[in-house]
Amino acid sequence: MKDQIDEQALLKGLAISDKKAVETIYQENFNMVQSLIINNNGSSDDAKDVFQEAMIVLYEKARSGTFELNCQIKTFVYSVARRLWLKRLQQQNRFSATSDNLENLIPVENELEEHEKVNVEFELMEKALNNLGEPCKSLLEAYYLQKQNMHVIAANFGYTNADNAKNQKYKCLMRLKKIFFTDYKNGNDDGGY
């Protein structure tokens, strides 16, 4: 029972990306996933990739608030990582059946579908930002992601005052929104939703 409480606390920590929680989950699960990958034709770099991807799935799940812990974190991470790795192997046309005991697995298809969708959206945003070029990219990142104050931004980017910086930010934002929403719509059309 105590374990379960601990795990709940860990997930709560993870949801706010608390460093201690992330470290604990990382430390307790990485080696397990690594041996899974390495025993199935992967390298330790693959293991790192797949494990971190699984961590992000767990993170999203923890943040969504709908995660009812009806299994251990370990089981969840292992199931997700295994599924991700099988998928990768399939993409590379290397069908290989992993031999593991299936009792410890839970179905994670829905989570992965959700995760893929989110990934596509974030890739869109990343692409849109990259396509903006500089200084727009850094300017918007400073304001919207790092939440810096306009005065600080004006000073860092060499604008004479906050209003000038605001002006520039506005122009950049309009361009970003245009790119983002065009891609967003196109992406949704292509995806055939």
Binding site: S17, K19, V22, E23, Y26, F30, K48, Q52, M55, I56, Y59, V118, F122, M125, E126, Y144, L145, Q146
Partner: peptide, 15 residues
């Protein structure tokens, strides 16, 4: 997106 990016890079640090 910002949080996702931060989390991703924090994972690398932790690793």
């Amino acid at each position: 997106f910002g949080e996702w990016k931060k989390f991703r890079s924090s994972l690398n640090d932790v690793h």
